[in-house]
Design a protein around this nucleic acid. Sequence first.
DNA 1: TATGAATGAGTGTTCATTCAT
DNA 2: CATGAATGAACACTCATTCAT
Lengths: 198, 198, 198, 198
Amino acid sequence: MRTKEGNKEQEILEAALRVFAEYGYPNAKVGKIAEIAGVSTGSIYVYYKNKEAIFIEIIERLWAQLVGQLRMIEQRTDITAIEKFDGLIDVLFDAFVDKPFLARAILNEFQEDINITKATYLEDYHEFLSIGKKVFLDGVAEGNFNPNFNVEVIKLFVLGGVRMLLHQWANDPQDLTINLLRQNVKYFCRRGILAQGR
Amino acid sequence: MRTKEGNKEQEILEAALRVFAEYGYPNAKVGKIAEIAGVSTGSIYVYYKNKEAIFIEIIERLWAQLVGQLRMIEQRTDITAIEKFDGLIDVLFDAFVDKPFLARAILNEFQEDINITKATYLEDYHEFLSIGKKVFLDGVAEGNFNPNFNVEVIKLFVLGGVRMLLHQWANDPQDLTINLLRQNVKYFCRRGILAQGR
Amino acid sequence: MRTKEGNKEQEILEAALRVFAEYGYPNAKVGKIAEIAGVSTGSIYVYYKNKEAIFIEIIERLWAQLVGQLRMIEQRTDITAIEKFDGLIDVLFDAFVDKPFLARAILNEFQEDINITKATYLEDYHEFLSIGKKVFLDGVAEGNFNPNFNVEVIKLFVLGGVRMLLHQWANDPQDLTINLLRQNVKYFCRRGILAQGR
Amino acid sequence: MRTKEGNKEQEILEAALRVFAEYGYPNAKVGKIAEIAGVSTGSIYVYYKNKEAIFIEIIERLWAQLVGQLRMIEQRTDITAIEKFDGLIDVLFDAFVDKPFLARAILNEFQEDINITKATYLEDYHEFLSIGKKVFLDGVAEGNFNPNFNVEVIKLFVLGGVRMLLHQWANDPQDLTINLLRQNVKYFCRRGILAQGR
DNA sequence: TATGAATGAGTGTTCATTCAT
DNA sequence: CATGAATGAACACTCATTCAT
């Protein structure tokens, strides 16, 4: 038989990522994904139920990876919550440094085209947010973080801010380096906008 | 401002807003917009070149309105940059308080379906950002804002954070009140995440 | 506006009948129906929900017509059940005399492709059978028909026989004239296969 | 008879029969047949040229069997044509008594999906009809059958009637027993619908 | 202006068949 | 012989847009 070469599934995924990123989910043609993956149209459906399943797989893998990384940071005992928070920011940025395609795809995650009810991919997303929340609360317990914030609000705000920056950067990476973004975000989150002493 | 402000044109716009918000741009049917506007399908094309033009018109009007409001705040001489910054946050939130539809539509603004090259709607969007930047720089000049930030980064970060919160709130407004969001954002931007005195 | 010319619906139906008859339901291409109807593919869907709906419409109309004709015959008081039975046979044959296409289409009525649960078209079909049954029972009451038959069996047998003949004739009408078929069927049903006196 | 009567070939045939019967020819998936036969998809094509060939093989075998049975009856010299005719009816019914699947498959024999020009399976079918015709003509010669019929018509009529009954019974075998059908058909064919003495 | 019937290009998905192993 | 992964042609249906009235 023609043996499953074992990397077609992965190649389809990578091709899909590029196509989703370039055209957006609704305009991403399955045939285009197949072409880029170097595979026939029909083969796509050997590995994935349908277009949506590919998209969901991509998102799931991303969040699973991010959750894994963040969890390692959160469990360390040798650093403060402040440093863990920095780590969280780094995890987000690192995920996209050399994958602007992924950044663009993920930014459209909530597109209405995906039947969100089917998506289990939110699990890891929520887990990520949950760990982030824990880091913050630890910081409050340590006395390092301001206890007056609503954690839900802050975590969404920070996530949204990072997303926006990555989006912009993915579209036009020229003048803003990832590290500049990263540093500014970390510092802003720590000290706010005010001048020291104010 | 458009030359003709007839009833139908406005009703089409409002209907479109609802349909875009409910189904997302790609799944919004022109026929559905016509139905809700109480107009025939063909009439849509009397007033707008195509579906995309309607979308762009909506976005343009939104940003035009926001720019107008922000400009008024920025030109005041009786308040500090800190207060102007708070005003900027308020402008963003106020625009969506009773229009979650609009929030959802605008949040998908960057969907790939829109041929961004055609879109002139970015003008007011960039103008908005530009004024925001000016507020920040004034704050720096006043000595109130930390001069070490890259303004481009901060403005995108804040805008992205606000968007994310509004998105979440639009989808599920139950437990997070707009004012809670607003207060947390303002305070976070001012003081950062750290406890006072740290 | 481009006015609905009022006969497109009918033309689609007639085209569909020909295409169904020629290729069978599963191989009947919607595009082909449109082509023959002198209409665009999309127009098909202006008038009918989908391919199946067209098929069902055809069947429904046929049986509705047959039921109407049979009902008139059945209600007459000036003829015996024997003559009514002859009329039933005639109704069946007449329906197809100049429409061999229809005969072929109807003969595939029970194809598995049609979701029979959705089909209300069976109503008139069953009504037809029901009236046929009544004619038979009247004949029994009159003393003209043999009371020992199971009516259900006979009605299906006769219908199936007529179908088969029409099918054959539709495929190859050359040597068997409709009237020959008709006479033989009537006579066979009346007297059976046996020689008189046996 | 085929040269190779291996296990797999037979199992494929039986599986195909079930799948054709359950889903109808067009919706019968080759993969499903393979699955039920306990064979790989590819193996199907080792034994049969394609899907159609399997179908044709099934039909051919059926008619071959029926012809064999009918021929034996026809050649007997100890019974009259009337009894041979009864035997013909029995042969048809017996073929399906415990194989409603086969009944349903055969009933769709004429589906347009099968390229009839290719089908040699009509040979035995026509042979069957031919023998039936001979039985009838013998009956006429004996003086037992009514000579005024067109044999072609009668044979098709009877065959069609039996088919219809079997079809109905295959779909819903509950209330009509095979033997009831059989008796009614035989009696109807002999005596017709009229009361005795009329 | 206003209409809405008509259009037809465009695409996700299926599945019979092939063929490298 | 047997496999089953790979193929790609085929098709129903959608819907933004047009245009005759």
